[in-house]
């Protein structure tokens, strides 16, 4: 009998990789996209409980708008606003509402009496925070838009330019804020980021007011548009990281 060596086909690297991926994808639960995840969470929990503190948020927002308006009026009495100066003002102060909401209703959340219980529920504080922060960002953008609309009619500003400038500033700050929350450990460094934004803007507008105004106004409209979109995408990605933050870092 002739003994012939049987031919066993050996898969190449590509086939092996494809097979491994197929086995893994069948074995693991499919991971939903971040958007779908937020939607599922919203459907399961509902707006009422995601924003359990809606009255407090609305009150804080209302109070902040009043304070910021009076602050603007009193500053306006001392230094008459010129058009260019206003753009600087809008860029520096656009994240203010977001900053207030994010501080009181996210950073301060660890002081909540039921923090530990909330953190051990299926949807914990960080997962809820991702939805809330997205909402805060969008609400701040709309409120800024509304205020700019009121200012624009009074001071003859270019509304669209002012709005895109404000949105750029808002999402740049929001991304920076979330980055600080995710990467920095001490409360002081987190607060320093918040204070840093205001201080740098004040410094630039006070010491090199004209240069700063010129830079802000020279940048073309579409560049702000691109920065705004990129800022929003980065912000969205950081929100996604927030949902797994507790899993990666521990929370107490």
């Amino acid at each position: 009998m002739s003994r012939k060596k049987p031919h066993i086909p050996f898969p190449n690297e590509k086939v092996m990789e494809r097979e491994i991926e197929a086995i893994i994808s069948r074995g693991l639960d499919p991971t939903p996209s971040f958007g779908r995840y937020l939607l599922t969470m919203y459907r399961q929990i509902g707006f009422r409980y995601i924003f359990r503190d809606a009255t407090e948020i609305a009150f804080t927002l209302f109070l902040s708008i009043i304070i910021l308006t009076f602050l603007s009026i009193s500053v306006g009495n001392y230094a008459a606003f010129e058009q260019g100066n206003l753009y600087t003002w809008i860029f520096g102060w656009s994240p203010a509402l977001y900053m207030i909401m994010a501080y009181f209703f996210f950073m301060n959340k660890k002081q909540s009496p039921i923090y530990e219980v909330e953190m051990t529920c299926k949807y914990n504080m960080y997962q809820l925070a991702a939805f809330r922060m997205l909402f805060f960002g969008l609400v701040a953008m709309l409120m800024n838009g509304f205020m700019i609309f009121l200012i624009a009619s009074e001071y003859q500003l270019n509304f669209y330019f002012a709005f895109i400038l404000s949105t750029t500033s808002l999402f740049l700050f929001a991304t920076l804020f979330l980055y600080a929350q995710l990467k920095m450990k001490s409360l002081i460094s987190k607060l320093a980021v918040i204070a840093g934004w205001g201080l740098i803007n004040m410094f630039l507008s006070y010491f090199s007011s004209e240069v700063y105004q010129t830079i802000l106004q020279q940048i073309p409209f579409y560049v702000y548009g691109v920065i705004s979109i990129c800022g929003f995408i980065l912000y969205y990605k950081h929100l996604k990281k927030l949902t797994v933050y507790a899993r990666a870092k521990g929370v107490v």
């Binding site: 929990i45 509902g46 409980y49 009496p113 039921i114 219980v117 909330e118 051990t120 299926k122």
Partner: peptide
């Protein structure tokens, strides 16, 4: 989980409070 220092929202009734946590528990 019941923590050692169990916190609650003072103005909630047990039913409101449990409904809130039930929502968080999906």
């Amino acid at each position: 989980y019941l923590p050692q220092e169990f916190g609650y929202y003072k103005n909630y009734s047990p039913e409101q409070y449990l409904l809130y946590l039930a929502a968080l528990k999906g």
